[in-house]
Simulated scan of single mutants.
Amino acid sequence: MRQPGANRASSVEANEANGVPVTGRQRLPEGMLLRCVPRPSLPSCLTPCLGQSQLTASPMTAWIVLPVSLSAFSITGIWIVYAMAVMNHHVCPVENWSYNVTCAEELPRPGFPKTCCTIQDIPLISKCGSFPPESCLFSLIGNVGAFMVVMVCLLRYAQVIEHSHRCWVNTSALVSGCTNAVGLVMVGNFQVDHAKSLHYVGAGVAFPAGLLFVCLQCVLTYRVAVTALDYWMAHFRVALALGAMVSLVLSGIFFIHESFVLQHAAAICEWVFTVDILVFYGTFTYEFGTVTSETMMAGLQQSHHHHGSGVIMGPGARGSTLSGTTKGLKSPGGSSTSTHLNCTPESIAML
């Protein structure tokens, strides 16, 4: 009895003799290399049986809304709080530089700011949110803003891990960002005129932690930069970080003095610092356009280099590791995702 392999070889030789083309699955000429081809699409019911290396991860571009929302919501909110405080005669406007030691009672004029201001009326951000109704909005901004800060920090942490940069700088940035969020909650919910000690503790935690976060993110931006646009973004963030550092230091120096003018200057520096930090958070829109489901998994597993898809082991998992290495070389600000070709044994013709 003839072996099945011999029958197949005979049929191949017969086809060659008759001039019938022979496909790659039947025979390969000597010296020709095998070429890997993409795996054909399979029914959706078979998709869970494959590792994620077999699937193309599409960017979850909706995440770009998060940093923009954080900046727009917080900056707009604190200025609304300031406007409400000025109109309710709880603080004096920023453009006012004239302060008195004491002021006689004056009849409030609806729609007009105060005309006689004391040191208690300096428009510090915290002072603007001390009294209702603006204190209610101030607390809401602090709580919602803190939640969005934590989300931004977690996504950025996972994205840096995905780009094969597991280092203490990334972990420190995550810790400082979450610490900043805790401080924001304390600042927003403990008003300076009603719980001064807790409010100052929250401010003392939030401001330095926020500055540390932006400085560490500048370092990480340079580390993961690939294209010229990535480096320009890193330069821009360094400029924002320097502005935040200068304004925070000046605010602290001016705040400890009793001079009305220096106290007012401290309030202006505090506003500059806060807006600067919020703009910095908004710049993560540049990277978040490439966030995928793989990014989320990288942040949860914290082992992007050592694990593939986490679904199967073997050739498929090996392909996943290779595809992850390739993704680490992609520009963090790019919006396109490359298609991964899988060189698995199933895609190679067997003689």
Rank of each mutant, 00 (worst) to 15 (best):
261 V>H: 06
27 R>Y: 15
159 Q>E: 09
157 Y>C: 04
175 V>P: 11
34 L>V: 15
145 G>A: 04
351 L>S: 07
171 T>S: 14
309 S>Q: 07
45 C>Y: 13
192 V>S: 12
330 K>D: 11
77 G>P: 03
270 E>R: 00
88 N>Y: 03
276 D>S: 08
103 C>K: 01
328 G>P: 09
108 P>I: 03
337 T>W: 07
276 D>P: 00
57 A>V: 09
332 P>Y: 06
160 V>C: 07
344 T>N: 10
69 S>H: 00
182 V>P: 02
250 L>G: 09
92 C>S: 08
332 P>H: 05
335 S>Y: 09
86 V>M: 03
102 T>Q: 11
141 I>K: 00
292 T>M: 03
287 E>M: 11
22 V>G: 06
176 S>M: 11
105 E>M: 06
52 Q>L: 10
339 T>R: 13
277 I>A: 00
200 Y>C: 08
97 W>G: 02
254 F>L: 08
344 T>A: 07
177 G>N: 02
71 S>G: 07
287 E>L: 10
307 H>D: 13
215 C>S: 10
319 G>H: 06
16 E>D: 04
314 G>C: 05
271 W>T: 01
96 N>R: 12
331 S>M: 08
242 L>M: 11
228 A>F: 09
225 A>N: 03
191 Q>G: 06
64 I>T: 15
207 F>Y: 02
169 V>Q: 06
1 M>T: 14
13 E>K: 06
177 G>L: 01
259 S>Q: 03
307 H>P: 02
170 N>H: 07
7 N>A: 14
144 V>Q: 04
216 L>T: 06
226 V>T: 15
59 P>Q: 00
272 V>F: 07
245 M>S: 14
68 V>W: 00
170 N>R: 06
32 M>R: 12
62 A>C: 14
194 H>S: 12
186 M>N: 02
94 V>C: 02
341 L>P: 01
8 R>K: 08
184 L>F: 07
105 E>F: 10
200 Y>D: 14
267 A>I: 07
238 V>T: 15
149 V>Q: 00
252 G>E: 04
74 S>E: 06
82 Y>K: 04
249 V>C: 13
142 G>P: 05
259 S>A: 03
98 S>T: 15
17 A>T: 11
237 R>F: 05
147 F>D: 05
345 P>S: 10
179 T>K: 00
165 H>Y: 06
303 S>K: 13
57 A>L: 12
295 T>D: 04
78 I>M: 10
227 T>S: 15
192 V>H: 03
135 S>K: 04
24 G>W: 05
235 H>P: 05
317 A>D: 15
